[in-house]
């Protein structure tokens, strides 16, 4: 087992993308840290903001065009051209969410409820908020504050603290 001084004491995760897999990678890492008793800050910026905007957070999609790792049920690669069929992105995203539900992975809003109930903190990036013309009222209740990059670094400081960019 690692020495106490080798242990991770704080995790700071930055999520700049808003596809299902980007946001879930962030939330699984964040929730996992909270569950281990690690102090956790999650910072959403650029397209990642969709994950904390009230009327968007539970409607995230996954990219079906330009996603070479995406496969059809059975394992065949999904031809990019199929991705342009209307409804394909919505269908694929629905499938992803259904599969996640089977593994007891909660929807985004519920995941954030679990994270914040355990003491994890969720923040929005000020610059991206300004750029996408979001207001504080657009954000879900789980957001603790809107930070500048300087404030984020201040928050992320300390011994045993790590920054992850998902």
């Amino acid at each position: 087992m690692a020495n106490d001084k080798d242990k991770i004491k704080k995790i700071n995760i930055i999520c700049a993308k808003g596809a299902i897999e980007d946001v879930y990678a962030t939330l699984v890492l964040g929730n996992g840290a909270v569950m281990e008793g690690i102090e956790t800050n999650i910072f959403f910026t650029f397209f990642g903001l969709d994950a904390i905007v009230k009327n968007r957070m539970d409607k995230l999609h996954t990219a079906v065009v330009g996603n070479p790792a995406l496969r059809l049920p059975g394992g065949m690669r999904m031809p990019t051209l199929l991705g342009v069929i209307p409804g394909m992105e919505a269908f694929t995203s629905w499938m992803m969410k259904k599969e996640m539900e089977k593994l007891d992975i909660p929807p985004v809003s519920e995941f954030m409820e679990l994270i914040t109930a355990g003491g994890g903190k969720i923040y929005a990036c000020k610059l991206a908020m300004d750029m996408f013309k979001f207001k504080k009222e657009d954000l879900c209740e789980y957001v603790s504050g809107i930070l500048t990059v300087g404030e984020f670094y201040e928050l992320a400081g300390g011994e045993g603290s790590h920054i992850i960019f998902t």
Partner: peptide, 9 residues
């Protein structure tokens, strides 16, 4: 059954 933090909730 599997144990998860969600199942506690």
């Amino acid at each position: 059954e599997a144990l998860s933090i969600r199942s506690i909730n």
